[in-house]
């Protein structure tokens, strides 16, 4: 009985506390860089598209709102032919960012993307791609991956030896 009265009293005293509400459109919160908002596709430091079309983001997506088609340029560098995110389905869980092996797909602190027409929430690659590396400024997947692309032959990565000569029998 006393505890009930006590809780009533404590609740009552909250009348004189400061209110926590942030009056959103007039007042804005500072969002951290880890905020999971709008999804972007970043570029590597050489301004090449980071996305290699590996489909892992699409596979990780619990609402299946990412679809893409991988393709290759003449040199063998992979990139997405199209990359589509249906933000009307997206739940901003960030799994795609976690799945991405090349840091291409990133969620940024922007959530103000409401539309009157649902169709406008379907973002294509040109709307997703930004001109920068996002949260991982130095990373370039092709500097580590063992495939050759234009400007980088076999064995030219930092962690690679030059290609072997199949005719050599030297130890």
């Amino acid at each position: 009985m006393f505890s009930i009265v006590r809780s009533l009293w404590i609740t009552f005293l909250h009348m004189f506390h400061k209110r926590e509400t942030v009056q959103y459109p007039e007042q804005k919160n500072k969002l951290t860089t880890r905020w999971r908002g709008r999804i972007v596709l970043t570029r590597d430091p050489d301004m090449g598209e980071r996305c290699v079309g590996c489909y892992l983001c699409a596979a990780a997506c619990p609402v299946d709102c990412i679809s893409l088609q991988a393709t290759e340029d003449e040199s063998g560098r992979r990139y997405p032919e199209f990359f589509r995110i249906n933000f009307s389905r997206c739940i901003f869980c960030g799994f795609c960012e976690e799945a991405c092996p090349t840091y291409a797909i990133q969620l940024i602190p922007d959530f103000e993307m409401s539309e009157y027409n649902r169709q406008n929430l379907v973002y294509e690659k040109n709307e997703l791609l930004i001109d920068g590396p996002g949260k991982h400024p130095g990373y370039n997947f092709y500097n580590i991956a063992g495939v050759a692309i234009s400007g980088k032959g076999k064995g030219e990565n930092d962690n690679e030896m030059p290609p072997i000569d199949t005719k050599s029998l030297l130890p």
Partner: peptide, 16 residues
């Protein structure tokens, strides 16, 4: 069961 892109592959035509 890992099939992806169901809600997006045709979204360019119609979001529904």
């Amino acid at each position: 069961h890992r099939y992806s892109g169901r809600t997006s592959m045709l979204a360019n035509v119609n979001v529904s």
